[in-house]
């Protein structure tokens, strides 16, 4: 039998019956995609790189999701949910890619819910909490500017899966950056009070910027597959300067947040905020290991 709408289809017996609402019943996001590791590329390194980029997206997405029901206006809440959903989609592809590349067969859920804090490879900028909406906008501006520059180059990756994920992600990140830039200007070039809050948001995110451009050993070993983050700095600086000039804001002159013995997010060394974030992100999966969604 046919169905008038897809919603009808999921309630019929033809469905496997494990989905309980629209958008559930997660299926392999790389179903049918050739995930062979390219010749000459180390599978473990490729997996580690996918985790870095996937964790950046997963953790940033979770922070954005925490804004739902907290945003100043319904339209902004919808926007933040959309940005979070795009990043979650990128994370799902990248974490799934990691499990195929290292041969472990681990799924996106295994990576998201069964790893400890030290096993997450996201940059620390993705995990920190936001004091207010301006703080979130400052962080989203820098994060999306950086990730857009990164994915723009990753489209040329020697790994076709990474290149494809990047090509789709560029379209999405372009909107995220535009959204954050728009709010940076409205707040920065708004009232004295909004300008002060926006400037404070930039001051909070600025110490976390240098870490974005430090290449890890994995990225150095994966030349041609991975992007060297050092190469992203001129583009990021130019975009941020353009936005801040339009917003009449100054880039704060601050020292970068140091790591622990030189180790930071890419080495699994995180800020205090990360433990609380994971406690929430993983709570249901850890309490109900047999749960599906």
């Amino acid at each position: 039998m046919g169905f008038d709408t897809a919603y009808e289809a999921i309630s019929e017996e033809s469905d496997s019956g494990h989905r309980w609402a629209f958008g559930t019943g997660f299926t392999d996001p790389l179903a049918g995609v050739d995930t062979t590791v390219p010749a000459g590329v180390d599978g473990a390194d490729l997996a580690a790189y996918c985790l870095m980029l996937g964790d950046d997206a997963l953790i940033m997405s979770h922070r954005l999701q925490q804004w739902l029901a907290r945003a100043p206006e319904l339209e902004e809440e919808t926007a933040l949910a959309n940005v979070a959903l795009d990043l979650l989609g990128q994370a799902r592809l990248l974490l799934t890619r990691a499990g195929r590349a290292d041969g472990s067969g681990r799924t996106e859920d295994d990576y998201a819910f069964d790893r400890t804090e030290r096993e997450f490879r996201n940059v620390r900028m993705a995990e920190v909490t936001d004091v207010d909406f301006a703080g979130l906008i400052a962080r989203l501006l820098v994060f999306s500017t950086w990730r857009l520059a990164l994915l723009g180059r990753l489209r040329e990756s020697a790994d076709p899966v990474l290149a494809a994920v990047a090509a789709q992600g560029v379209n999405e990140l372009t909107y995220h950056r535009d959204y954050a830039a728009g709010w940076t200007i409205r707040l920065g070039d708004g009232t004295d009070y909004s300008r002060q809050r926006m400037q404070a948001g930039l001051a909070a995110v600025a110490p976390l910027v240098d870490e974005l451009f430090v290449p890890s050993v994995v990225e150095q070993r994966l030349a041609g597959v991975a992007v060297n983050p050092e190469d992203l700095r001129p583009e990021c600086d130019a975009v941020l300067a353009q936005v801040l000039a339009a917003a009449r804001l100054d880039w704060p002159q601050v020292y970068g947040l140091s790591g622990v013995s030189g180790k930071a997010g890419r080495d699994g060394v995180h800020t205090e905020a990360m433990g609380y974030l994971l406690a929430e992100l993983q709570s249901v999966a850890r309490a109900l290991p047999e749960a599906t969604w």
């Binding site: 039998m1 046919g2 169905f3 897809a6 919603y7 289809a9 999921i10 019929e12 033809s14 469905d15 989905r19 629209f22 958008g23 559930t24 019943g25 997660f26 299926t27 959903l85 795009d86 990043l87 979650l88 989609g89 990128q90 799902r92 592809l93 994920v165 789709q168 992600g169 999405e172």
Partner: peptide, 23 residues
């Protein structure tokens, strides 16, 4: 091809495709 990386409609489209083709 999903429209966006996080498109949540893919399982629904899959189910609908399978249902209509089975019919």
């Amino acid at each position: 091809t999903p429209t966006y990386s996080g498109c949540p409609a893919i399982p629904e489209i899959r189910a609908d495709l399978a249902g209509r083709l089975a019919a």
